[in-house]
Design a protein around this nucleic acid. Sequence first.
DNA 1: GCCGTTTTCGGCCCGACTGTTTTCAGTCG
Length: 575
Amino acid sequence: MPVHNSDVADILDRVADLLDIQGANQFRVRAYRTASRTISGLSKSISEMVENGEELNKLPGIGKDLAVKIREIVETGTLRQLEEIEKTVPAELADLMDIGGLGPKRVGQLHKKLHIETLKGLEKAAREGKISTVKGFGKKTEENILDEIGRIQKGEGAGRLKLVVAEEITKPLLEYLRDIKGVKIAEAAGSYRRKKETVGDLDILVVCSEGERVMDEFVDYEDVDRVLSKGSTRSSIVLRSEFQVDLRVVEEESYGAALHYFTGSKEHNVAVRKLGQKRKLKINEYGVFNGEKRVAGRSEEELYEQVELPYIEPELRENRGEIEAAQEGALPDLVTLDDIRGDLQSHTKYSDGNYTLKEMAEAAQERGYEYLAVTDHSRRVTMARGLDERRLREQIDKIEGINEKLKGFRLLKSIEVDILEDGSLDLPDSVLKELDLVVFSIHYNTNLSRKKQTKRVLRAMENRSVNIFSHPTGRIIGKREPYDIDIAKVMKEALDSGCFMEVNAQPERLDLNDVYCKRARDIGLKLAISTDAHNITDLDFMKWGVAQARRGWLGPDDVLNTRSWKELEKLLKRK
DNA sequence: GCCGTTTTCGGCCCGACTGTTTTCAGTCG
């Protein structure tokens, strides 16, 4: 059973939480958290690195000690140290930190003084009024704990929202804030601005001549469920959707510094501040300071300049190597929506799409595209009325007829052919060969073993008629875990055999994810960003795919569909 | 526990708000 990067990261986080509750040295705790972040953001498999005997302590934030521990996790699946700690600090205590207002210190106190070990135990103690008897805890804290537990039991809160949902909530709120008198700027920062696939909460920054008024109006927004805190420069609310929003009011001269600060990520900020420290500069949300003197802060550009860095795009700010790249002048020139010249996956009424060939073609043209691949399902996907050979040929004829009438645009003859369980394809080569390109994907037998699933895809790729492996991991954000498949191996094979892979732009898929995009770029494998549109409006999902690609460091050259059809056609020819 | 153009020891990002205190620790971002 291979140990994944996320498994290693989880164990290290677990150790960090429990050490924290135990009251261990803060910097030691931080070291475990940093290492966990490093590993989950790694674009290669930690298991493979161990197998290949690579030196783990070359990784940032990982020294001799942690390298040994990580190796132990990879080789045994567990960490003895964690098991040891759990003998004195019950594992479930870590979960109590999910309760707002409870951090490591308080959880540690509750364990020590009241012998609380579980959420149930905590609830009981709170109901019996025991919490408020502990020093440092009062009635309000006790009530708050019960409220929070109530919400957890109702299954509310805490969950991260998909980026697309976060946008639906954010846009009207920003408009509301911009309408308040005196507001010059209202902008969203945080993981929303970094275009992370899910957003935990929203950070909004406001520049306004009347701070108090903004705060009053903010907590008065019609969608507010409760107010967590309200100050003159910072307030937090929870919306009825359980989405938390933090608002900060800053002076215009601090706007850039604040925007940088609240855009994060935390790890990126820490790294930038350290660069500041080396130059005797203090960086906070109000600016860059040399002693008492503010030397920058109005814009992000000027803040970066102070630490001798070029501007770094928000999507890259994860401390996954962007600072080093910036120092070396090696930041990628990220792909933009404007670079996209066509869409390489879409469905029509022939299978489970809702529009005709002609309607889809017109919609793609309206978006300024030069081509749209029609990739209806193949026969195995019966639920979607998948195409058999006869119907596909009929569609090919129809597309050719439509193309004759179009100028500066063409529908590409294609199919999303199903990969059957043994790795063979759902349609015969004879018809696949007549297509402009072939997209291939998995819809059934999704729970095969890692070995079988990987072999299945590798075998499919051996067929010279296929081109783009679609939604390669099959995950649905927050709903369905990825298939157990060795993506690294599939990528390597795709590169060697002249195949490509996809970033599926459906906001609930975003598959490949950012980390895999970066891995593809690292090895030189080009990716298609495709909307998998089933409707005309789905064509606009392209922006989510582009966002994910940007988070994965992709430039225009790394993306297939930034090319004209003529160039793309050459690239798709397999040897 | 990590790390090094002030360091192999002694640092480790920084500030707002709350609740509990009676000047501040803890939490959060």
